Simulated scan of single mutants.
Amino acid sequence: MNEHSPSRFVAIDDLDAFPAHLRGGVVAIGNFDGVHRGHRRVLKTALAQAKDAGVPAYALTFEPHPRSVFAPDKPVFRLTPPAQKARIIQAMGLDAIVSVPFTRAFAGIEAEAFVTDILQSRFGICHAVTGYDFHFGRARRGTPEFLSEAGAADGFGVTIVTAETDESATAVSSSRIRAALAEGDVVLANALLGYRWSVEAEVRHGEKRGRDLGYPTANLALPAETQLAHGIYAVRTCVDGRWIDGVASYGRRPTFDNGAALLEVFLFDFSGDLYGKRLRVMLAAYLRPELRFDNAQALIAQMDRDSAEARAALASLTPLGSLDRTQNGLPGEDAGA
């Protein structure tokens, strides 16, 4: 953090509670779902501007996702719910995250009012940083060009960050990451994120079939809008601050009840009561699709093979970058920035 920031990161979800010590700072504006490589270019640019000016840097984002407000019957598959998003932004070194409650009334604010009432009057910004595709205000009239012109007229700086592209020169986006996860392409999703994706949920009681099969699992119900490919994954799970390797199944258990989708996690070399605990499960590799077996013996034999494959995949993990190492408890040298 820069020299003028407080020692503790703050998360703010009420504009009326915006703290005085953040006034005059640099704001990075965007939805930042996933906090992927492109988002982090925006956030890093804001950090650099703040360091040069000796002022705080913070992220301005919106909850819930705007698309979920305008199409509530089709809620967005969130890559990083609010708590996870805040944790990553804190790890990057920003001083705060401001999560504006996004409603239809807020969406109806004129672009001029967003600049004057929020960025200037409320925040007193010295500089704003956004991505090339950020829009704001009623009818999305607030374009990056609009913001740049407002800054030039009103005396605050504006930096528009260009698209981050992958090795195929295709823009990194949250939509691409969601699509990759839906197809089971964990490698691509994690590469676009720049760190390995994880989910968080509380362990719930299940049918305890895994225990009878010799594979007791922690059962986690993910949000209904989760579009993760059904199948078997090599995973690492954070239990009370300790990372443990394992193998997980996400799906409907076609061999048994074909019920609602669950994430069932088997932790290697672990014993203990997990009920009621909130776990973070990091997906390292997709091993195979979900299958139906004729009997329990065939399923157990496949689970043995899955476990061996998962152990092999996890044994060779290298951090994708410093964020992957710190967020996912990975030892060793970073593979990238």
Rank of each mutant, 00 (worst) to 15 (best):
A308W: 13
A234R: 10
R23M: 05
M92I: 09
D306P: 09
F123T: 06
P82G: 08
C238E: 02
L222G: 04
V35G: 02
T326H: 04
R280M: 03
A234H: 10
S168D: 14
M92N: 04
S175D: 14
A53S: 12
T318K: 10
T80W: 04
R140Y: 15
I232E: 07
A284H: 14
C126L: 03
R305M: 11
T103H: 06
F102N: 10
A46K: 05
D294A: 15
A169L: 10
D185T: 05
H135A: 04
A139L: 11
G241E: 07
V76Y: 08
H230P: 14
G241I: 07
A313Q: 12
Y275H: 13
L193Y: 06
D73W: 10
T226I: 09
F268K: 09
V26T: 04
G124L: 08
L193M: 14
L323W: 01
A189Q: 12
V235N: 02
S322R: 10
I244V: 07
F266C: 14
R242A: 10
R41F: 02
G54I: 08
S168R: 13
A17W: 02
D154A: 10
P144A: 15
D16N: 12
F256P: 00
F293Q: 08
R178S: 05
L299T: 01
P223M: 00
E145I: 00
L60E: 06
P254Q: 15
S316Y: 08
A11S: 08
I300S: 05
A315G: 11
V26F: 02
A224D: 11
V239M: 11
R67W: 15
L15A: 03
A20H: 13
F70V: 14
A179N: 14
K208E: 15
V100Q: 12
V100F: 13
D324I: 13
S68Y: 04
V115G: 01
S7W: 02
A17M: 08
A301F: 08
I118M: 00
R311S: 13
E225V: 14
R8S: 07
G194W: 05
R122K: 11
T116W: 00
R67N: 15
T130I: 09
A91N: 03
V26N: 01
F256N: 04
A221Y: 04
T237Q: 12
A261Y: 09
L15Q: 03
E164A: 12
I244N: 03
G329N: 07
G184W: 06
G332A: 06
Q297D: 13
A313D: 12
L94N: 03
H205T: 10
R178G: 08
A298D: 11
L119M: 05
T326K: 05
G336M: 10
D240L: 13
A284C: 14
H205K: 14
R292C: 08
L147I: 01
F32W: 01
G241K: 05
F270I: 03
L274D: 12
R305T: 07
E290G: 04
F32E: 02
G34Y: 07
A180R: 12
A71W: 08
T165W: 02
L181M: 11
V26D: 03
T162R: 15
C238L: 00
